[in-house]
Design a protein around this nucleic acid. Structure first.
Lengths: 192, 192
DNA sequence: AAAAAATGAATGAACGTTCATTTTAACGTA
DNA sequence: TACGTTAAAATGAACGTTCATTCATTTTTT
């Protein structure tokens, strides 16, 4: 095995361990030593891949956010109708949040916490453009409500995070019927 | 000034300081010494009011949650029509989240973080019953969608937290027009 | 003068980070 | 292939700092 691919493995292991431990304990309550142990390497080795703890968390955030965005626009094409396009993206996001729970919870924690620095936050926001574009198109076609994209996001996408949270705390079971219900409510809240 | 009321003041100062510092730095990155300093007392004195740091944060969470709930049901009466009742509660919550930003951000961080222990989380959840009751009544009257209260909450109440977040990060300005828009979207998403 | 409240220096444990040392991989030569 | 040499990667004990918590002492109240 080449040094590079071995390096990739350790980096990957570090990222995975960070996500899991931060989910369970929070950023400042997960020591580098534990991250190292869970990744199966020595504490010192972390610093071959990341500058320091803050940099580690920022990088992990950016990467998870990117992977989320990739997932969100999987199989989405710009020539889709506004309604079909939205359905595709919404359901992608729902699948991600309900199946990739570790990553989704990690993002949710990062987004509601001062643990990520501002540049990395900005970096993570870049990828959502296609959805914004879709909404503008929908507004031009008279299909989507003429309100700020923040409003559209708040009422159609953001609720998924809450459902994920409840599902995770085992307060609520989201069957595929429920997901369909939820999608209808989401679409209903943004369509004219 | 009596010893009791002085004690209350110190306790209050501690609670306020905790909220502010945890908002800015996160739970584990706010030392007891800083909380004490901001509250204008000595570190040791904290332990006259709270068992330890975990207990402090749990208590603050429970109290802020209670104050949020009180605010949510201010001027609400059970004899209100479902629509009027929901509007009252929704707008109360909106005012709280947009005006009492410190407390709202604190709750948002607590709810997305492992910093609060499970019993305190449960404790904080108790107060929302009147809203659930209202929804059940609305469902019986055929006004409110026949879906889980989690779903109703996700699509009508939870979005306010996102708008608060954006407002706080100065990415979005929520005028009273926007609040009305948002209310209509919320009502629209739960009514049949 | 006694009791209650508050103090803040001291304690010991935990953590992020470093770096001298060891281990592993890569390469060149015969 | 086998061996010796060099470079790269990884290690983990040690360092310095920070922090939650305690308690002997001081200050305030009764």
């Amino acid at each position: 095995m080449s040094a590079t691919s071995k390096g990739q493995n350790k980096r990957e292991a570090l990222v995975k361990a960070t996500i899991k431990l931060v989910n369970n304990n929070g950023f400042h309550a997960t020591p580098m030593s534990k991250i190292a142990k869970m990744a199966g390497i020595s504490p010192g080795t972390i610093y071959l891949y990341f500058e320091n703890k803050q940099n580690l968390i920022n990088q992990v955030y950016i990467e998870v956010k990117a992977s989320f965005s990739d997932f969100a626009f999987m199989d989405y094409e710009e020539y889709f109708s506004v309604e079909k396009g939205f359905e595709k993206i919404w359901k992608n996001i729902a699948v991600f949040k309900l199946k990739e729970v570790e990553e989704a919870m990690f993002l949710s924690q990062c987004d509601n916490t001062p643990m990520i620095d501002e540049p990395s936050r900005k970096e993570g926001l870049k990828h959502l453009q296609p959805l914004l574009d879709l909404w503008v198109r929908g507004q031009n076609e008279g299909i989507i409500k003429q309100v700020s994209p923040y409003m559209l996001y708040a009422f159609s996408i953001y609720p998924i995070a809450f459902l994920m949270n409840m599902q995770q705390r085992e307060l609520y079971e989201l069957s595929s019927t429920h997901v369909d219900e939820a999608y209808k409510m989401a679409w209903n809240s943004i369509k004219i």
